[in-house]
């Protein structure tokens, strides 16, 4: 079997925070990521979904060692990189890149496109074959930007074009893995498809692996091979795309999928919804037992006391729930 590009096991990232009001100062931790396992193989896309604050971005940043993990291991191309220092990480960074949600905030407004893309070579002290400017223009062309615009500044581009600049930067060093954190969420619907198609084409061309972080399940469904569903720092379900969308076994996944609006009035009206009550609990004070128990529509006493482990429920399909939904068919 081929070796995974990325394998994380028991990954935790806790942030210290001060809790309590003005009078009761205390220290606590946000368990932003609290035990996540996942694997990505070459050329594969893993979708990481879940509601705001469930820890998706933190997983992405910790995987790239932009955050130091609190516990667990990160293996990249078979090498344990968990304990590597920033200096040791540097040569490996070329292999693992990130695309950010906000194409406005993630690009330095005072640098031209040429500089922004060229920086990635400078940091690694690499001179591309055939010359830097030529390579920058080739990349611009590849992502659908006009190479003549090499001396323009980010504000002279539209949102979709700025995201293309981000993509060009990410692929400049021919990485193996790209963590894409909500790469199309800030874009207009009519522009999202352009960027999604570009990411798919590049994946095919370079056999890239993506960790695709998003809250939009329709986009995730489209682009992913496997999908991992998170809730309050934990993995609730992890399955092959088709399996997850056709046969969700975790009550949370089932509710989440039923809440996604479908652009088809007849289907939309006929669909049964599981409406979850209430909001996400605070990750500083997560519920005991199953973290989903305060909103779960199947909750029993056991859920309030015993943490369900993430276990394989059928081949290639894992869930963390005491009372899984029955397998359909």
């Amino acid at each position: 079997m081929t070796q995974p590009v990325l394998k994380i096991t028991g990954l935790k990232k806790h942030f210290p925070v001060s809790t309590g009001g003005v009078f009761s100062k205390g220290k606590g931790v946000v368990k932003a990521v609290d035990g996540v396992d996942l694997e990505i193989f070459p050329g594969q896309t893993i979708g990481l979904v879940g509601e705001s604050g469930c820890g998706k971005t933190t997983v992405g940043r910790t995987v790239l060692k932009l955050y130091e993990p609190t516990a667990g291991t990160i293996e990249f191309n078979g090498e344990d990189i968990t304990k590597l220092t920033p200096k040791q990480m540097k040569p490996r960074r070329a292999q693992m890149q990130m695309i950010f949600q906000d194409p406005f905030a993630s690009l330095n407004p005072r640098q031209t496109v040429g500089t922004l893309i060229g920086n990635t070579f400078d940091i690694q002290k690499i001179t591309p074959e055939g010359g830097k400017v030529e390579e920058i223009q080739r990349l611009m062309k590849r992502v659908g930007l006009n190479p003549e615009h090499i001396n323009r500044y980010p504000h002279e581009f539209s949102g979709g074009q700025r995201q293309r600049i981000g993509v060009a930067r990410a692929i400049a060093l021919k990485p193996k893995l790209i963590v894409a954190d909500e790469p199309v969420s800030a874009l207009d619907v009519s522009i999202q498809a352009q960027v999604v198609n570009l990411l798919e084409d590049l994946q095919e061309e370079f056999n890239l692996s993506y960790l695709f972080v998003a809250h939009d399940l329709s986009v995730v469904q489209h682009i992913s091979d496997r999908v991992v569903v998170m809730y309050l720092g934990k993995v609730m379900e992890d399955a092959d795309k088709k399996d997850l969308f056709l046969n969700p076994r975790h009550p949370y996944t089932k509710a989440l999928l039923s809440a996604v609006p479908v652009p088809d009035p007849k289907i939309g009206r006929a669909r049964e919804r599981i409406i979850l009550q209430g909001d996400l609990p605070s990750p500083v004070n997560p519920p005991a037992g199953c973290v989903f128990n305060t909103r779960c529509w199947k909750v029993q006493d056991k859920c309030r006391t015993e943490v369900p482990e993430l276990v394989q429920i059928q081949p290639g399909h894992k869930i963390a729930c005491h009372f899984p939904e029955p397998a359909s068919k």
Partner: peptide
């Protein structure tokens, strides 16, 4: 241009 959660064929957008 929009992907749909209820269509799993994975056609190009």
């Amino acid at each position: 241009s929009i992907p749909r959660v209820d269509q799993l064929e994975g056609k190009r957008l």
